[in-house]
Simulated scan of single mutants.
Amino acid sequence: MKKIGMIGGLSWVSTAEYYRRTNEIMQQAAGGVSSARIVLESVDRQEYVDAVILRRDEDAACQQILTSARALEAAGADFIVITCNDVHRFVPAIQPAISIPFLHIAEVTAAAIAARGLRRVAILGVRKTMEGNFYEQILARHGLEALIPNEGEKTFIHDSIYDELVQNQFRDETRQEYQRIIRALGARGADCVALACTEIPLLLKPEDAPLPAFSTTELHCQAAVARALKLD
């Protein structure tokens, strides 16, 4: 079994879910009382937020993730998963500096959506995910089109993630607003939705979404187990 390197802490809420689901999936796949070989590097979220939000210093944030990636490499990890969607924007800059690969969450998600025969993907996440181009580019390579919420919807989604979800708060009224936003995106042409923040599936289960919904957390954990067992 390969050793999974996990960069967590962004937030601890989704990191705990990653650890739980990766081990549940591993036990189902490998049988018995199997558990995944995981080495976790937990980032200080406050340090990351200070760099990205307060100082707008993307280089400092990238360096923080690179330091964690190198620690996982030194600890013997065979590959790396990041338990946060938007941090994957740093992967192209970091990958050349380490010798082990990242398992990219957007690649895993795009492949799963394409396999279902869906094409127009609404992206829900923090602003850097919704407004950045890494999801759009990866989806396009799989023949998919990204649809982004409007400004008011983006503000609600982003603020709810920072003010509630990463603080382990999940409110019915927030869930209902997500459902309303997804219905609106469907009316604008989306045929599915990527829950592209790893805390969102803790608020809104895919089966409760008005469109076919893809939990990036679940897909990433499944792919990590497959790679650890050399099934991918």
Score class of each variant (00 low, 15 high):
Ser34Ala: 15
Ile65His: 05
Trp12Gly: 11
Ala226Arg: 15
Ala184Lys: 15
Gly76Arg: 13
Ala75Phe: 00
Gly9Thr: 08
Phe79His: 10
Gly5Leu: 01
Asp44Lys: 03
Ser215Asp: 13
Asp172Pro: 01
Asn23Ser: 07
Ile80Phe: 03
Thr22Val: 15
His104Cys: 07
Ser35Ala: 11
Glu47Cys: 06
Gln167Val: 00
Tyr162Ala: 03
Leu72Met: 10
Tyr18Ala: 02
Gly5Trp: 01
Ala184Tyr: 03
Tyr135Trp: 11
Ala190Phe: 06
His142Cys: 08
Leu204Arg: 02
Ala71Lys: 11
Ile7Cys: 01
Ala140Thr: 04
Leu40Cys: 04
Met1Tyr: 04
Gly32Trp: 00
Glu145Thr: 09
Ser215Met: 07
Ile4Gly: 12
Gln64Thr: 11
Phe90His: 07
Gln27Cys: 13
Gly32Leu: 04
Arg119Leu: 03
Ala140Lys: 13
Glu107Ile: 00
Gln28Leu: 09
Arg175Ile: 00
Gly117Cys: 04
Asp59Gln: 14
Glu24Gln: 14
Arg188Tyr: 05
Ala69His: 08
Ile98Lys: 07
Ala71Ile: 02
Cys221Ala: 15
Ala51Val: 01
Leu195Met: 11
Ile138Lys: 08
Ala112His: 08
Glu145Cys: 00
Val166Gly: 02
Arg119Phe: 00
Met1Ser: 13
Gly76Ala: 09
Thr22Gly: 08
Ile25Cys: 01
Asp159His: 08
Gly132His: 13
Val13His: 04
Val81His: 10
Glu164Lys: 10
Ser68Val: 03
Ala114Ser: 13
Arg175His: 09
Thr198Tyr: 10
Leu66His: 04
Arg180Asp: 07
Ala97Ile: 00
Ala115Leu: 05
Asn133His: 08
Leu118Met: 10
Lys128Pro: 06
Lys2His: 14
Ser160Phe: 00
Leu54Ala: 14
Ala196Cys: 13
Thr15Ala: 10
Gln176Met: 09
Leu103Asp: 12
Asp50Phe: 00
Ala97Gln: 15
Ser68Cys: 12
Leu204Thr: 02
Val166Asp: 07
Tyr162Cys: 03
Ala140Asp: 06
Ser14Gln: 09
Asn23Gln: 12
Val13Ile: 11
Gly132Asn: 11
Met130Tyr: 06
Ala226Ile: 03
Leu195Gly: 03
Gln64Tyr: 01
Ala213Phe: 01
Ala112Pro: 07
Ala16Gln: 12
Ala30Trp: 05
Glu47Ala: 13
Ser11His: 06
Ala228Phe: 01
Asp86Lys: 03
Leu231Lys: 15
Tyr135Ile: 02
Trp12Glu: 11
Ala184Arg: 15
Ile161Lys: 12
Gln137Val: 06
Thr155Arg: 15
Ile82Lys: 11
Cys221Val: 07
Asp78Pro: 01
His220Met: 08
Gln28His: 09
Leu231Glu: 15
Ile80Asn: 10
Ala111Thr: 04
